[in-house]
Each structure stands twice: as structure tokens, then as C-alpha cells.
Simulated assay, not measured.
Amino acid sequence: MTETPNPNIVDTDTLTGEMRPIRRAVLALGSNLGERMASLQGAVNALADTPDVWITAVSPVYETDPVDSPPEAKTYLNAVVLIDTTLAASRLMDRALAIEDAFDRERGEVQNAPRTLDVDLIVVGDRRSDEPSLRLPHPRAAERAFVLRPWFDLEPEAEFPDRGPIADLLERTDQSGLKLRDDLVLEIQ
């Protein structure tokens, strides 16, 4: 899943003629404030409208207990989106932050505080980054059932870079706080 980009599969920038490899990326969506489902669907729509981003799959929606959150935090709706993109990881991160901002995401000093929308880059090709503004692969995703379970639903054979098969990682996580919401379906438009 997170293979090195194939140099034989490229997209040509129509303005510059620059050849850019297509990379697979995994993004996790979450919301526990406001119209949670509308926020998730809005994020999927915004990603679909992003130039040089092609959504290839959207997971089922899960309702999940908050993890490492303040006591007043309510349950989340979570999903995973798989995309192919020619965007650089930093540009994809900028887009994720812009989508969050469009849904009035407030960033405060409290870690894992309730939020209208969270759009996390989990994996972008084989890109590695330890910059404060871009950490790839996502440093905690391999331990989070609310990321691994929906990703597993889409790609049961996927590997988390440097950590192993997501199936094995999922087995080691506490899944008791996850509930599949068959009544909620995200659409690719």
C-alpha cells in the first residue's frame, strides 16, 4: 500500500510540464462537535475537489469513544479515506489544515480537545518526516483502533511503515470503544 512511488506512473503538471509521481495516501477523519456526519462528508467533498487528489476509497463510519481526551469529550465519528495524489506531503498537509479551518476547527492548548473536524495524514507514500508541522507516518496512528479498523476495512493487507501489517497492529489495540455505524455512509461525489 505505501510503496515507493512508481517512476513509470506519473502525472504531468499542465503548466510546467513537470513529471510528478503518484503516491498513495491514507487520511483519517474525525469529528465530535457539531454536525459530526456533515463535517466528515464535507471533508470527503473538499478532498474530492482538491486538484491533484483522487479519492480511491472511503471506509465505513465508526462511532468511537474519545482517546486521551478531556473528560467532557463526546463520542467521535471516524473514517479513513484512501487517495492517490501528486501533491507533495507538505501541500497535502496544508490542504488538510485548510479543510479543518473551513469547518471551524479550533486549535487550543489542550491536546486531543473536542473538535468539529480532524483531518490527519497517516501515510503519504513512503515519505518520512519528523518536522513539527509534518510528522509522517503519523506517530500515534499505529496504536489507534479508530484509525486502524477503518483502514483495515479498506485494505486488510496494508502495512504501516516501520511497524508492520495493520492487521497485526489492530489485534494489539483496544477495540472496545468502536461501534460500526451501518446507518451512516460517506459518499464520494
Rank of each mutant, 00 (worst) to 15 (best):
T2V: 07
T2W: 12
V10Q: 15
D11Y: 13
T12A: 14
E18V: 13
R23P: 06
V26W: 05
L27W: 08
L27K: 06
L27T: 07
L29M: 00
L29G: 01
L29D: 00
G42P: 02
L47A: 01
T50Y: 05
S59I: 10
Y62W: 11
T64N: 00
D65F: 04
D68A: 10
Y76I: 04
V80D: 09
L82V: 09
I83D: 05
I83S: 05
D84K: 12
T86D: 10
R95V: 15
A96E: 05
A96N: 02
I99C: 14
I99W: 15
A102C: 02
E106Q: 09
N112F: 05
P114D: 01
P114A: 01
R115K: 12
L117K: 03
V119Q: 13
D126Y: 08
S129T: 08
L136V: 04
P137T: 09
H138L: 06
A141G: 05
E143W: 06
R144M: 01
L148T: 13
W151G: 13
D153V: 06
L154M: 10
E155N: 13
F160E: 06
G164Y: 12
G164P: 13
E171D: 07
D174T: 08
S176W: 01
L180Y: 08
L184G: 10
L186H: 04
E187K: 10
Q189A: 12
